[in-house]
Amino acid sequence: MKNKRWIVYAACAVVILISPAALNRYWTDVLNVIGLYVMLALSLNIILGHCGMFHMGHAAFYAVGAYTTAILNTAYGIPVLWLMPLSGLLAGLFALVIARPIIHLRGDYLLIVTIGFVEIVRIALINNIFGITGGANGIFGIDRPTIFGMKISTPGQFFYLIWFFVAVTIYLFRKLEHSRFGRALNYIREDDVAAAGSGIDTGHYKLIAFVIGAVWAGFCGTLFAAKMTIIAPESFNFWESVLLFMIVLLGGRGSIAGVILGTFLVIGLPEIFRQFATARMLVFGVVMVAMMIFRPEGILPPPPRTYRLDGDTGPEEAA
């Protein structure tokens, strides 16, 4: 069973990799958007899926990353990809500062506070805070990224750039999931009192999860700014956060494959439903409800962690 699953993964990866050859620019660009959202959703998955914190304000961190890139690139001409680490760092710092006092809030109270943060960030951006965000116009004229002197501008080129980062993300987050840290997060999600009782510093771990998710969202912000070449506050509104939230839950909390599949659905379906024109979002709403009813734990919930008894090393994933 286990091998079969790997064959499917590999097949999917190959299909995705060669797809730009078969697709036109539009569908390639749809895949680019999906790729960006895969990264974002995976970063939210650490917070919401693994650690179980109700976080509906992920767009705030994404915005910090995107604006950091946009401002420094347009003002000082620093190449966009160089700004990626800094964008992630600032998003992480921002998360650290705001999450510290609120990390202990339970479920729904945390939810509204994170919604509050994303709205505050959006309002601050619109009101041109510090005079550097360009207000409602946003920032335009962001450079295209260059790699080894090659300028990335067509959807096909962006495809490989974005999906390279998606691959890196999947690899690293998979490592994280199976680390001691990942197991601790899952314990907190299932029962944080018991986790604390077993000696896990829950506040500390929750904070780290939050910061990791935010750093990654910051990285995505850089890619987004580079791809769009214009960013405006409306790209980071509450609805974006809701979309990400839905992706993680629809795909399966804590499951990388699930979240990827969820992104394909949540971002891909409205594009497919374009033939319904004005009714496309209506169909989308119905599909959302139906999906949740038929797969309440998400399309692909993570398999339960199982451990071998015969004294083998390390945890092993069940198929």
């Binding site: 839905m246 839950l249 709403g285 119905v286 599909v287 959302m288 409800v289 999906m291 009813i293």
Partner: peptide, 10 residues
Amino acid sequence: VVSALGASIF
């Protein structure tokens, strides 16, 4: 909650 969001869009 996701079902509610779907219903809201609908």
